[in-house]
Amino acid sequence: ITIHVNGVTYHFDNPEEAEKFAQKMAKTYQLKMEIHNGEFHME
């Protein structure tokens, strides 16, 4: 699972971890999250 946050790329093997991380980042930084081709993009 690949997550892009403001141009920084994070890779996770565990989908649950990826989702937790994505939600935490979105909440902490008030980010808008989109999913493209199974990759999370946040800005």
Rank of each mutant, 00 (worst) to 15 (best):
K32M: 13
E19D: 08
M25C: 11
A26G: 08
H4I: 07
Y29A: 07
F40L: 14
E34I: 14
E16V: 11
E39P: 05
N37A: 05
I3F: 06
H11P: 01
P15Q: 08
T2C: 15
H11A: 06
K20A: 11
V8Q: 09
Q30A: 08
G7Y: 06
Q23P: 00
H36W: 10
F21W: 10
K32W: 14
F40S: 03
Y10T: 01
E39S: 06
N14G: 05
M33E: 04
I1D: 01
N6H: 12
M33N: 02
T2W: 13
I3V: 14
H11G: 03
D13P: 10
N37L: 07
I3C: 05
V8C: 15
M33V: 14
N6R: 09
E16S: 10
T2K: 10
I3K: 01
A22M: 09
K20N: 08
H36S: 05
K24C: 15
V8G: 06
M33A: 02
H36D: 05
F12A: 00
I3A: 02
E39A: 05
G7D: 05
M25L: 11
Y29L: 06
G7E: 05
H11W: 11
I3Q: 00
F40R: 02
N14L: 09
E16C: 14
Q23S: 09
A22D: 00
Q23N: 09
H41S: 05
N14T: 10
K24S: 10
N14M: 07
N37Y: 09
I3Y: 04
A26M: 13
L31P: 05
T28Y: 15
H36A: 04
T2G: 02
T28M: 12
E16Y: 12
Q30R: 01
H36M: 07
Q23V: 11
V8H: 11
F21L: 01
H41W: 14
I3G: 02
M42C: 06
M25K: 00
V5M: 07
E16M: 10
H11M: 07
T9N: 06
I35G: 05
Q30T: 03
A18Y: 02
T9S: 11
P15R: 12
E34H: 12
Y29N: 12
I35L: 09
V5Y: 06
H4L: 06
M42L: 12
M42I: 07
E39H: 08
D13N: 10
E34N: 07
K20Q: 11
Q23R: 10
A18I: 01
K32R: 03
I1L: 06
P15F: 13
T9H: 08
E43T: 15
E39R: 02
E39W: 05
K24W: 15
G7P: 00
F21N: 00
E19K: 10
T9P: 13
N6P: 01
G7Q: 06
Y10G: 00
H36Q: 07
E43A: 11
I3N: 00
G7V: 14
T9R: 13
E39V: 08
T2F: 12
I35D: 04
T28H: 14
A18H: 01
A26F: 09
H36T: 07
I1N: 02
T9Y: 05
D13A: 09
F21S: 00
K27N: 11
A18K: 02
T9G: 10
E16W: 10
E19G: 06
G7S: 07
A22R: 05
K27Y: 12
H36V: 13
K27W: 13
E34M: 09
N6E: 10
K20D: 11
E19T: 11
A18S: 01
E17S: 10
Q30H: 13
H36R: 13
Q23A: 10
T9L: 09
V8R: 11
V5P: 00
F40H: 04
H11R: 07
K27R: 05
N6S: 08
M25N: 02
K20V: 08
P15L: 13
A22G: 01
L31D: 13
Y10M: 03
M25Q: 02
V5L: 06
M33H: 01
A26E: 13
Q30S: 05
N14Y: 06
H4M: 03
Q23G: 02
N37K: 05
F12Q: 00
H41M: 05
H36F: 11
K32E: 13
T2Y: 12
M33C: 15
I3W: 02
N37G: 09
G7K: 07
E43W: 15
E34C: 15
I1H: 04
T9A: 14
A26D: 13
N37C: 15
E39K: 04
K24N: 10
E17T: 08
E17I: 08
H41P: 02
K20M: 08
